[in-house]
Design a protein around this nucleic acid. Structure first.
Length: 355
DNA sequence: AAACGCTCCAACCGCACAGGG
DNA sequence: CCCCTGTGCGGTTGGAGCGTT
């Protein structure tokens, strides 16, 4: 036995709202508020509408603070960033965008942003790396599962997030989304605290980023050592010819900034900031088509580097959601990142993927 | 000009959760 | 506790509008 419907389905009007209905609803709520009971509200004002429908109409359309018009680049980036980190929690994402509703954000993501991101990168990278796309050669991508089974087994959201996640960061990359404060929204739903870091060389090969207690932020700083992470110089500025790559130090250690909140990098190292800005550009580029096959040969090469760099240049291991590659990608990542990863891994597990 | 296809968005649906009795 | 009900949320759908053939 299912639960009783919230209203008499046969006796309520459906479909688009008329101006008269809008007027009644708006006038009543502006004068009396919702009265704490949406179900009873339509009867009170003589509307043949379901209470849920009234609520939706008010929240998504009639509310006075609704923001109309296109989304800004900043809003795009916030939506993408949050989608990657928390998935399709549209109400939370919308809460970071004043005047936007969850429905707006959801529609905008489904109709535009998703295409912008996946479409562009698919186009731009597909000739270089068909494996990056969930739409390309699924047999190879899914450890032999049939394309249908594999594409249905994982939720679209999870696949999208993994794909974006992978596109926007190498998990060994200190300037990944999770490690890159520049990509994080001001009010990160998973935290929101700020951590400040000093960047300094510790030896020829490494740079230590150590948290700096600031007056208002001191309480957020973990005990010494917890928040120190080591960065290879070439990661800070990969184009600097004076930097020598050490093949023996390909694994980077990133003890977690376990407070997992928003991270602010103090302006103490211009290379660090350059790199952070570079990653922000990467998200921006995904959204606004500044990279990809439209670039010249050198830039295409750089794009390819972006696609493969976290796998140490081994294109054959780019089968990143197959057992081997994905597991390799996950090892050594820090725990706030692993919130998402655990999510994704759970989804993998649920559907019989064993990593 | 008509047919067709695509995009976008408002609205609906069903489920999960929270809180009160 | 358990049940019931209202609320909130995410996924999906229907159709208007627009562009293309």
């Amino acid at each position: 036995m299912g639960r009783a419907p919230c209203c008499d389905k046969g006796n309520v009007k459906k479909g688009p709202w008329s101006p008269e209905e809008d007027g009644k609803l708006k006038a009543y709520i502006e004068e009396h508020g919702t009265g704490g009971n949406w179900i009873a509200l339509p009867q009170k004002i003589g509307l043949k509408r379901c209470g849920k429908s009234c609520r939706l109409r008010w929240l998504n359309y009639l509310r006075p603070d609704i923001k109309r018009g296109g989304f800004s680049e900043e809003e795009d980036q916030i939506i993408c960033s949050l989608y990657i980190s928390i998935g399709s929690r549209w109400s939370i994402i919308a809460a970071q965008l004043p005047g936007r509703t969850d429905n707006d954000v959801k529609n905008y993501w489904n109709t535009r942003l998703k295409k912008k991101l996946f479409g562009k990168r698919r186009d731009s990278c597909s000739r270089q790396s068909s494996r990056l796309s969930i739409n390309h050669d699924p047999k190879e991508e899914t450890n032999g599962m049939s394309p249908d089974a594999s594409s249905q087994a994982l939720s679209t959201s999870a696949l999208e997030r993994m794909q974006l996640h992978k596109q926007l960061q190498g998990l060994y990359d200190p300037f990944s989304f999770y490690n890159n404060p520049a990509l994080w929204p001001k009010f990160h739903p998973l935290g929101g605290e700020k951590l400040f870091f000093h960047i300094q060389h510790t030896d020829a090969n490494t740079i230590a980023a150590t948290p700096v207690p600031q007056a208002s932020d001191a309480t957020m700083i973990e005990p010494s050592g917890q928040n120190v992470f080591l960065i290879k110089p070439e990661m800070l500025n990969p184009t600097d010819p004076s930097i020598q790559e050490d093949p023996n130090s390909s694994t980077l250690a990133f003890p977690s900034p376990s407070s997992s909140g928003a991270l602010s990098v103090e302006n103490s190292n211009s290379n660090f900031n350059d790199a952070a800005v570079g990653l922000q550009d990467e998200l921006h580029d995904l959204l606004y088509q500044k990279i990809g096959c439209s670039r010249g040969p050198e830039q295409q090469q750089q794009t390819e580097f972006d696609c493969y760099k976290d796998l140490n240049g081994e294109k054959e291991s780019m089968n990143w959601w197959a057992t081997d590659g994905f597991e390799k990608s996950l090892s050594g990542s820090w725990d706030s990142v692993s919130n998402l990863q655990a999510d994704l891994l759970n989804e993998y597990d649920e559907f019989g993927y064993r990593l």
